[in-house]
Simulated scan of single mutants.
Amino acid sequence: MKIVGTVKEVREQVKEWKKQGLSVGFVPTMGYLHEGHKSLMDAARKGNDKVVVSIFVNPMQFGPTEDLATYPRDLDHDAALCESAGVDLIFHPEAEEMYEKDFCSFVDMTGLTEGLCGKTRPIHFRGVCTVVNKLFNIVTPDHAYFGQKDGQQLAVIKRMVRDLNMDIEIVGCPIVREEDGLAKSSRNTYLSSEERKAALILSKTVALGKELAKTEKDANKVVEAMKKNIETEPLAKIDYVEAVDALSMAPVEKLEGTCMLAMAVYIGKTRLIDNTLINE
Rank of each mutant, 00 (worst) to 15 (best):
K46C: 00
K46G: 01
G47M: 15
N48I: 04
N48P: 04
D49L: 13
V51P: 04
V52F: 01
V53Q: 02
V53N: 01
V53F: 03
V53K: 00
S54N: 03
S54P: 02
I55S: 05
I55N: 01
F56V: 03
F56W: 09
V57I: 05
N58R: 11
F62I: 07
F62W: 02
F62M: 09
G63K: 06
G63S: 05
P64R: 01
P64S: 05
E66P: 11
D67M: 09
L68V: 04
A69H: 13
A69L: 13
A69I: 06
T70E: 12
Y71G: 07
Y71H: 06
R73W: 02
R73C: 06
R73K: 12
R73N: 06
L75Q: 09
L75I: 15
L75C: 08
L75Y: 10
D76F: 13
D76Y: 12
D76Q: 15
H77N: 13
H77I: 08
A79W: 09
A80L: 08
C82P: 00
S84H: 03
S84R: 14
S84V: 01
A85K: 06
A85L: 07
G86V: 06
G86D: 03
G86L: 06
V87H: 02
V87K: 02
V87W: 00
V87D: 00
D88P: 13
D88W: 05
L89E: 00
L89S: 02
I90D: 00
F91A: 07
F91K: 12
F91M: 12
H92P: 07
H92R: 07
H92L: 12
P93Q: 00
E94I: 08
E94D: 14
A95S: 10
A95I: 06
E96M: 14
E96Q: 15
M98Y: 04
M98T: 03
Y99Q: 01
Y99P: 04
E100P: 14
K101Y: 11
K101T: 10
K101L: 11
D102A: 13
D102W: 12
F103Y: 13
F103H: 10
F103W: 07
F103G: 03
C104I: 03
C104P: 00
S105I: 14
F106V: 09
V107N: 06
D108A: 15
T110H: 13
T110P: 05
G111M: 11
L112D: 04
L112R: 11
